[in-house]
Design a protein around this nucleic acid. Structure first.
Lengths: 260, 260
DNA sequence: CAGTGGTCTAGACCACCAA
DNA sequence: TGGTGGTCTAGACCACTGG
């Protein structure tokens, strides 16, 4: 009993109905931010369904991004659903000369406590998808700076910068854990490179197992995969930054000037 | 038997291991594009797990976006995983004067057959989240143009344009199903509006039930929610376009000029 | 028709959390 | 300790696809 087609001839499965119910309650404030959702056992009772069905419903609710589930505790409505703002002018030179790296510049606007952890700085073979962007042969050795960004202590983004050897070797600070005031872009400029533009290419997809691990996500949770190329006025790409962000933590905005 | 901690003391669940296995095989070409994945029954046999476990693994594989599952048929590796390119210069005026709306301009680059279906053109109350962007009071009546974009016949994106009454009333073609050559932006320009910039704000999240329906997605599949404001040289926002895209169908690129 | 994925059940055992 | 979510099983019935 309880099959979708029997409970009223509907084509919509029970788990979808339960998920929609919960999402609506979050939407209209019946379940306010910070509130604990009904436990799965309770949902089983109130909807008269089995555990598997409730779990599938909850998986869908989680995918919506407005809920956070903690093992042994329960699921609670997130306080500020979309949080960090990544915007076009985060790369302003004026920020760097004031000593703010891009992520600090935007953290200032959003009121959360930011953090960075440098995971590794090493020479390694360039990944196949990055090689053409840097205009180097596949397998060429480059400098890779891998770091983890935190927001209020929780990981929200990983980023890996790839820099050609000849550029990196000329700037010793790039091999240091802390590249100094203004971040690595300030170091590039200090070494005479002048930026013309940044090109960001992004797509969204479910998190892979590896990303799930590093960012502390539930499997299948959406992530944004963004690759940024830093182009100098000489037309050279001197850095490619590959970042993966927990999708629910970011809102991105871009300003596109109208052109002919 | 078969629990995660018993099969070798690993903390990684079986479904994750199976999903990773399949994703790796897709990645390295063991399962080439167009190929049918092993059926769920076969996976149960080869990995010696139950149906539920295999289904959870497949759900994770699907979330990766490289696989398409058809009921009664099986799961197959998508041909061209990321397909449509949405780029910064899709709004070039030169495209419009040549009679190409933005979506046609980019479709030309990607080799697929594009399509649009106008779902509705009507006057309605502005949504609460759109009102502040248009600088109108909540509940104000605006013109809403809702359309569905197709790629090779399958829906990939819904878009709803909101236009203030005073702007819309002056341009009769905006109420027509087909706004004419160059799209609605060409009509705005024809009526004397000059665009200064477009501001795009986007986030990624799992699809809601309603989106699942319209776009023909699996529940929980990632979507990109993008809101574009069209700003004129007079500083007025004359259109807000709210779009939801199937995430696996789009790669977005933005060019950000370096500024001080 | 046989084979495929989709929904659902009932029950087991585990890992985490808080009192 | 009792309640919570997380993983897994074994089996049922359904709906869709294709020959």
């Amino acid at each position: 009993m309880g099959r979708a087609h029997e409970t009223g001839g509907r084509a919509v499965p029970q788990y979808a109905r339960i998920a929609a119910d919960l999402l609506r309650q979050i939407e209209d404030g019946t379940l306010p931010p910070g509130e604990l959702l009904p436990s799965e056992a309770e949902l089983m009772r109130t909807y008269n369904v089995s555990a598997g069905t409730v779990r599938k419903a909850m998986a869908e609710v989680r995918a919506g991004g407005r809920v956070e589930t903690r093992h042994g505790k329960g699921s609670l409505v997130k306080k500020r659903p979309p949080v960090r703002q990544r915007s076009s002018d985060r790369f302003r030179r004026s920020h760097r000369t004031k000593g703010q790296a891009a992520y600090l510049a935007e953290a200032a606007q959003s009121g959360a406590v930011p953090g960075v952890r440098v995971l590794s700085v090493e020479h390694r073979a360039v990944p196949d998808d990055v090689a053409p962007l840097l205009r180097v042969a596949p397998g060429t050795e480059v400098l890779a700076r891998r770091r983890l960004y935190l927001r209020d202590g929780v990981p929200v983004e990983t980023a890996t910068s790839f820099i050609p050897r000849d550029v990196a070797d000329a700037i010793p600070q790039l091999r240091a854990e802390n590249p100094g005031s203004g971040g690595i872009y300030a170091r590039f400029e200090g070494a005479g490179h002048e930026f013309a533009e940044f090109v960001e290419t992004l797509q969204a997809r479910g998190a892979t197992a590896a990303e799930t691990e590093v960012l502390g996500l539930t499997p299948g949770t959406p992530v944004i995969h963004l690759v940024r190329e830093a182009v100098t006025t000489l037309g050279r790409v001197i850095e490619v930054c590959d970042t993966v962000m927990a999708a629910d933590q970011f809102v991105l905005t871009y300003r596109i000037p109208a052109v002919d």
